[in-house]
Design a binder for these strands. Structure first.
Lengths: 343, 343
DNA sequence: CCGGTAATTGTCATTTCCGCCCCTGTCGTC
DNA sequence: GACGACAGGGGCGGAAATGACAATTACCGG
């Protein structure tokens, strides 16, 4: 797939999509299709109109990579084969849980494409990444001091590795100057819409959204997050506290009580939790309760008041506040999003 | 991309994905990735576990097709190269508005693959289609008397062409026996989840949904539908009526009044509308008003009561009912889904 | 046994925010 | 048209989190 003809001399925008081994092929295919649809709807009524977008797929070495899941993707050459793109897109990368291997892939990509990416950005082009693609940009230093996001399950790793980036946890799409980033897998669709909006305006983006069946205004990744495994640790006191909490989540549970139970003081408990788990005991309990409520919303028809009681709260109003802070959606919307039972 | 090894002798399920010229490549890539993720999450804790899914991409003639937007897709061969798949998937096809050309593509596909598809289905395999893929199945006679859906903008065409199919307008995913179908573009993600659920259970599907950032329970295409261009016609009376309606939508408007205005009777007006446009004058007016309300919800901050008045209604309660019947969501949710302004 | 040092814990004041209560408005259902 | 479940604003008393600093403990070599 190669680019033909000129671009910057006209109103037509050129997009270069970077494919590489193990990349999320659907992000590339989706973006292409969204641009294709935008071309169709943008030229409504005039079939001879110049298309709004052109695009080409490239790879670091110019050879066809094998995407995630084993799909072969044909490319038009190395990055140099798309002269003067208006936008560069880097898809994500599957993370299987092996941090070392993952970071090594990122480092290798950054080495191959970092200089090119920096040059593109300095040359005034828009750079858009989705999912783990943000790591490549961060590694290349392009995100220092800038807003960015990534897949929700990579958030902690990202924040730890790149403290200089203005990391926006849980956001779906971020924009900072000419740098766009987006979250997990299908967030690339929201990113694609943002790109269409950027070059073609909000009305065109909305038309595309309706054809594609995407909310034009999905707002965050928060509702999708699940409680991740805590860091392993050896703190005997905290371990005992965790165990005690786990077996009493359903009951009213105060930190003071808990401290007494473990023959220590609230202050110590607080300090140790923060040190080892990075949060307060109360927070820990709340997280568990919210996760419990999510399970009940997903798998039962109990009404919210009942669920509130089951996870150890009395007042629906307060627990709703906590639930919404964690998930960024209301309980009923959460249920509509993730209910397992038939509807 | 080829399948290696056996399949039906074990618990592993094999999926054959059919690619063809102009097909929606992202549907293929997405399904592959969803299956890949399902393999990862399904085997949690046991890296040596046999994967739940295997897959292979094929094309009618075994050669690599060029997907929508110009993306080349590598295939493992013709349909015969995936022996005994457990599921066959057919992606959609871009519809640019040229019905004749579209139907010719469908006919050609049905000719190439119809017999194979029928054999697969008769052999007990699951057949899944997304978007315009339903036309291929319908053309091959596999959908007669069965539930099916397709992209919302193809609904009328589908119903007209295949009256024997139990067409479910606006549904996102349908299942009838071993035949699955899904609606517009990204509905293939919902279909993919349904496939995972079918072979791996609801809990696994939910885990995948959260990683992919998909609602596990998106319910319909209705909110995304927009008023489509009406059929062109020559009925002078109806044309005058349409014109009169368009210029008076904002005012209270009765069919009786309208008939008087055009020097005819309500009965005639009804008959002619039904004959030419397939709906009643009242329905026609309502459709316009709902569409007007949608525009206002998308682009302004006016509250619903105000909008109701602007489109010519008095009672918010009754207009809400009409709005919800058409869109299947409440006005406030519609605004949250498609609001153009910042939020 | 002692004093020095560092790590940990306790005390307390401050601020934040939780949890409970009131209420109204919206939505879907019957 | 009425009802019940849900959403969410606001206020208040009290619990929780945390910083600063003092007190205690643990661990040394001398």
């Amino acid at each position: 797939m190669t680019i033909t003809g000129p671009n910057r001399t006209t109103g037509c925008k050129t997009v270069a999509l970077l494919a590489y081994d193990g990349c999320q092929g659907s992000a590339i295919a989706s973006l292409i299709e969204v641009l294709d649809i935008a071309n169709l709807y943008g030229a409504r009524g005039d079939p001879r109109a110049e298309p709004l977008f052109r695009w080409g797929v490239v790879s670091p070495d110019g050879r066809a990579p094998v995407a995630m899941g084993g799909l072969d993707i044909a490319v038009g050459g190395s990055p140099a084969s798309v002269p003067a793109p208006d936008l560069v897109f880097i898809p994500g990368l599957h993370f299987t849980g092996d941090v070392a291997h993952f970071m090594q892939q990122i480092a290798s990509l950054a080495q191959d494409c970092g200089a090119w990416l920096r040059a593109q950005h300095e040359g005034g082009r828009v750079v858009a990444v989705s999912c783990a693609g943000a790591f490549v940009l961060a590694e290349s230093g392009l995100l220092d001091g800038r807003k960015a996001t990534t897949s929700w399950w990579l958030g902690k790793l990202f924040r730890a590795r790149y403290p200089r980036v203005d990391f926006r946890e849980g956001e779906l799409v971020t924009q900072d100057g000419r740098i766009l980033s987006s979250g997990a897998f299908t967030a690339c669709l929201d990113l694609a819409l943002r790109i269409v909006e950027h070059f073609g305006g909000p009305a065109l983006a909305l038309s595309c959204a309706k054809v594609l069946l995407i909310h034009a205004k999905r707002d965050s990744q928060f509702p999708y997050m699940t409680l991740q495994a805590r860091v392993a640790h050896q703190d005997e006191l905290v371990l005992r506290a965790e165990s005690h909490i786990r077996s009493h989540v359903r009951e009213t549970l105060s930190v003071e009580q808990l401290a007494a139970e473990l023959a220590t003081t609230p202050r110590t408990l607080n300090r140790r939790f923060r040190e080892v788990l990075g949060c307060s005991p109360k927070q820990y309990i709340q997280d568990l309760r919210v996760e419990g409520a999510k399970r009940l919303l997903e798998s039962t028809d109990l009404d919210f008041g009942e669920i509130v009681e089951r996870v150890g709260y009395v007042d629906p109003r307060s627990f709703r506040r906590i639930f919404e802070r964690a998930t960024k959606v209301s309980p009923s919307l959460y249920r509509r999003m993730f209910s397992i039972s038939q509807g």
